[in-house]
């Protein structure tokens, strides 16, 4: 059924998307501003990008952030996938209600509470704050998001393939690696990417759990922004936006292609 949009609906869409995208667009445009005053256009220039790459503190922070995100997203993907399997394939087990609660709570819990409670925990067990405490905190938060993404895939897919493999005598572990894993792989990749971006982006939890030598990019950007607008922050933001946009476009194309292949193979 194709139908044309009414004028009202079309206007809603245009205004809605303009509201979502104009601020980001303006930020990127003004990162090419020659003037140090961020809101006054002084001609085209790429000087802030050069200044950015010469800013060692910022580069160091970017490197720390990337390492934390990779580590925590990897751990979160493994733990989150296991949790999703437990929730969809294990039926009732001891303490299931508590488990479900613990998976859903961190996602809606205000970040200030999660950040503070983890910090107090790390202090209580005597773990020095820094790289590892941020990575552990991010793993805990992001594994819950991975769980939800993988769980929704596990709930909708065709169980008969798994049952067929088991009937033919494949042990559970082998069934998992040969049948289940390839089918849920796109959702695991999506979960990993979500965990990675959330970790890259987090300011509040990282601020509570950071220590000497573990300044992440959001912490660095936040401390610069508090002092006022900075063209270097604009340039850094534009690069991040570019990377994320590229990543999302590539991921979308990949899932489209795998969906098309799945259809062709007759699933």
């Amino acid at each position: 059924m194709t139908r044309r949009l009414s004028l009202f609906n079309l206007t809603s869409l245009i205004f809605g998307f303009a509201f979502l995208y104009l601020p980001i667009l303006l930020l990127v445009v003004y990162s090419f501003n020659a003037s140090r005053l961020v809101t006054v256009w002084g001609g085209f220039s790429t000087q802030w990008y050069g200044a950015l790459f010469r800013n060692e503190a910022l580069m160091e922070a970017a490197w720390v952030t990337l390492r934390i995100a990779l580590l925590s997203a990897t751990l979160a993907t493994v733990l989150g996938t296991l949790a999703a399997l437990a929730l969809t394939r294990y039926g009732r087990f001891f303490g299931r209600t508590l488990f479900t609660g613990m998976v859903y709570a961190p996602m809606v819990m205000p970040e200030v509470i999660t950040g503070l409670s983890l910090l107090l925990f790390f202090v209580a067990i005597g773990l020095d704050r820094g790289f590892w405490t941020i990575a552990l905190a991010h793993t805990t938060l992001t594994m819950c998001f991975v769980t939800v993404v993988v769980q929704s895939r596990l709930m909708t897919f065709d169980r008969s393939l798994e049952e067929a493999a088991m009937d033919l005598g494949a042990p559970p572990l082998r069934t998992f690696f040969a049948v289940t894993l390839p089918l849920i792989a796109p959702s695991i990749v999506a979960g990993f990417l979500l965990a990675f971006t959330l970790s890259l982006d987090d300011l509040v939890i990282a601020s509570f759990n950071t220590g000497p030598g573990a300044t992440t990019l959001p912490i660095k950007i936040y401390s610069q922004v508090r002092l006022g607008l900075s063209p270097e922050v604009n340039a850094a933001s534009a690069i991040l936006i570019g990377i994320v946009t590229l990543g999302v476009v590539v991921a979308t194309l990949l899932t489209k292609r795998s969906a098309a292949r799945a259809r062709r193979d007759g699933h």
Partner: peptide
Amino acid sequence: PERHRPLLVALVILPFWTSFLIRIYAWIA
């Protein structure tokens, strides 16, 4: 139209993937 809907959904989600801090920072200017 149904064929445009996946694109529209993707366009709503895309800003969510870019840094929260950066999107708030953009509003200061």
